[in-house]
Write a protein that binds this DNA or RNA. Structure first.
Lengths: 237, 237
DNA sequence: ATAATAAACGTAATTTATACATTTATTATA
DNA sequence: TATAATAAATGTATAAATTACGTTTATTAT
């Protein structure tokens, strides 16, 4: 795009380039609490400070490529739910140099997470209510990501990305109670979920939380997509 | 080109900078149809082709600044609903040079729009179903923006940004029918709207569409925000 | 055999959504 | 000045979804 003016065109050569970074707000759920994957920086800039996971965007990659690259580096995982949050571009947001950051949030199944990488990169899962201060505007990114998670989880089945592929209804309920910071009636929650017709019951049970055991379910993405195209609106809230 | 400044730490100097642009998908509603504000480029690159309105992001401004700058240049308007859509960053999206674009969508009251600027910049309001092909990946941006408009308008009162500040209920209904590409029952639509308690009726009527005239209403942002904080969910669909 | 308990199922009352009928305010014209 | 025409506004009955609870079930430890 040329500059706005009606003057003689000035193209790409004349436009000034900027540093572009991606930062990832990585959510996880351990069955009890919502957590964030952050790391304590070993090197400059901001050595010893806590930070979101990120990187500069290389000329040879898209912003999604860059985000998936760092996600893979830090977690060992490839197939991760990843969605753009927003661009942070205040001109003084980074005292080191002008740099815009494209924030993305990711949802991870913590039991898939490769713990071996934790030491290598100094990464930690931290509960949302015990987060340390983060570098730059990363605190702000986290706040915005949480809001976005709530907004999105209200009408899209993204919560399932935080649970094991096989989950029980009480597990799902606890996750929703964490995300929305409110309680749900177990009987109505179950009824609502089953009425949506997007989870299929397995014959297996999870017996870790009760003598009776609780049936495992799987989210049926194919079915959801089919319904979704017909105008079906997912919601458990 | 990395800066030479001694103040810039080395880790920033090693990173490669990129061209960063903003492009705006500008929606308008003329009372009948949803339209997009595009322009026929007078200059290179892509002279004579249709394009969204955009600009490179200058080092001295944020991406929001840049978007508001071009919106003001092309429409004369300052207070415009503007929200980020997403970042387009395929490495080959622009044959001129590697350039990432931050797409934002804007909602405009067409009667506020300064027509004088139309000739100067070759801008045109084009109905969504009669759009010409646009340069680069702008067609894709438009498709994505429309989806986002639908998604957002379903649960947030952003439709009102496309109507005159004083509007009638049938006008609002017509807009919703355009956005959601379906019809609404006038009696139920009205009932639903009024039950939400977020519009206030004025004493004036609009007589342009009937002998009886139709009462004008205003959206009550203060009331909506108050309700919204308490968990109220806006929806007319 | 029984107690304990999370899980699963059930029901009545309330609220919200849908489909459709009727009345109202106004103007043009017979 | 009475009447026809018509969009706007109000109303109503039925169906569907949500909410607030009570009850039964499967299992294990005692």
């Amino acid at each position: 795009m040329p500059k706005k003016s009606t003057e003689v065109p000035t193209y790409y050569q004349q436009a000034e380039k900027l540093l572009v970074a991606v930062d990832c707000i990585i959510f996880g759920f351990d069955g009890e609490k919502l957590k964030l994957l952050i790391f304590k920086r070993k090197l400059e800039p901001f050595a010893d400070a806590y930070s979101l996971i990120g990187s500069f965007v290389h000329p040879s990659e898209s912003t999604v490529d860059a985000a998936r690259r760092v996600l893979h580096d830090f977690t060992g995982l490839e197939a991760i739910f990843l969605e753009e949050l927003k661009v942070y571009s205040q001109i003084d947001r980074d005292p080191g140099d002008r740099c815009i950051s494209i924030a993305k949030y990711a949802l991870i199944r913590v039991n898939d997470y490769h713990k071996a990488l934790s030491d290598r990169y100094n990464t930690e899962w931290v509960a949302l209510d015990s987060l340390p201060n983060l570098v730059l505007d990363h605190d702000h990114m986290v706040t915005d990501a949480l809001e976005q998670l709530k907004r999105k989880a209200q009408f899209y089945p993204i919560g399932f990305e935080l649970l094991p592929k096989k989950f029980t209804i009480p597990m799902l309920q606890r996750l929703y109670e964490e995300i929305f910071e409110r309680n749900f009636d177990a009987r109505n929650f179950r009824k609502k979920l089953l009425s949506l017709n997007v989870v299929k019951q397995l014959s297996e049970k999870d017996k870790s939380t009760s003598k009776k055991g609780s049936f495992l379910y799987q989210f049926d993405y194919k079915k959801y997509n089919r319904l979704s195209e017909k105008g079906f609106q997912f919601s458990l809230v």
